[in-house]
Design a protein around this nucleic acid. Structure first.
Lengths: 143, 143
DNA sequence: CATAATTCCTACCATTTTGGTACACTATAA
DNA sequence: TTATAGTGTACCAAAATGGTAGGAATTATG
């Protein structure tokens, strides 16, 4: 029941793009340095985000990536589902054919509730929300 | 972000013991047949539950297992945490030393909320609750 | 007392996932 | 033209997952 590095790094990456946005492309190298993550691994992850149209890539020198849209358009759920795959705690939530016991399976109720609870959290936090949190943390640190 | 078979089977196993309790020991073989799970694998899982004192074992012919306590004493959370390990979505929730970025990490807020949501579900459903659900399903099926 | 039924314990294994590294190629700003 | 930076593919080690297999210990029952 863990979110893997892929999902966690993707979220930090997107937040980094949002926080450091100046209009100019941001290179993977810069993000990797700031976030202390292997740049080669980040490349793989940002490639997923690029193919999904979450970010826009600019090739060549001084190239990099920028968010396609404003931070309030990206929920944590969107980012995690893209990189992690489904967040459902068990397969039968997504795929009814994964198990033929539903009609007899009381535990299904547990998984359904768990799924709703998870979605309730990740689908109601946006990158913009995280930017506010991040800014608050920085301000408190200065004080 | 999946619950593995270990946790899922453990939950079905415990519910099976609760539903089929007559006071007499229930063998792993019987549970395996009813639940359609490999008995050898179930043996390993029930061994964990036994060592933790969730069930009591009776060895020898006509032996088997019985719940130590009444079904209302077991939450889904207890069973899943025992078999799956921590249900925290990321390591830093359990172990502050897992990461030295907390003070700068806005995403921590996401994981904290997710953790609370997950616990809120699994710690508030007991085996007794599942028995009621299971019985309701069986009754509806008959009608 | 012999036997069958069970739990208990350990070892083993194939497959998948995780978390990367490495390298060559392509595009572009300066 | 050169350095910078994305693109794509291949590769890899370690751990987790989801079991299988075999045998020893224990006990009810005939």
């Amino acid at each position: 029941m863990k979110i893997s590095t892929k999902g966690r790094y993707a979220l930090r990456l997107m937040l980094d793009l949002a926080m450091n946005n100046t209009g100019a492309p941001i290179s993977v190298k810069d993000i990797a340095l700031r976030q202390d993550i292997s740049d080669k691994y980040l490349e793989q992850i940002i490639s997923i985000l690029n193919k999904a149209g979450f970010v826009r890539s600019i090739r060549g020198a001084q190239g990099g990536y920028v968010l396609r849209d404003t931070p309030n358009k990206y929920t944590v759920g969107m980012i995690l589902r893209l990189t992690e795959g489904s967040l459902a705690p068990v397969a039968c939530i997504d795929d009814m054919d994964a198990c033929d016991r539903e009609s007899q399976c009381a535990t299904y109720v547990v998984w359904k509730k768990l799924n709703d609870a998870i979605n309730g959290v990740v689908d109601n936090i946006t990158l913009e929300d995280l930017m506010v949190i991040q800014n608050d943390m920085s301000n408190n640190y200065v004080i």
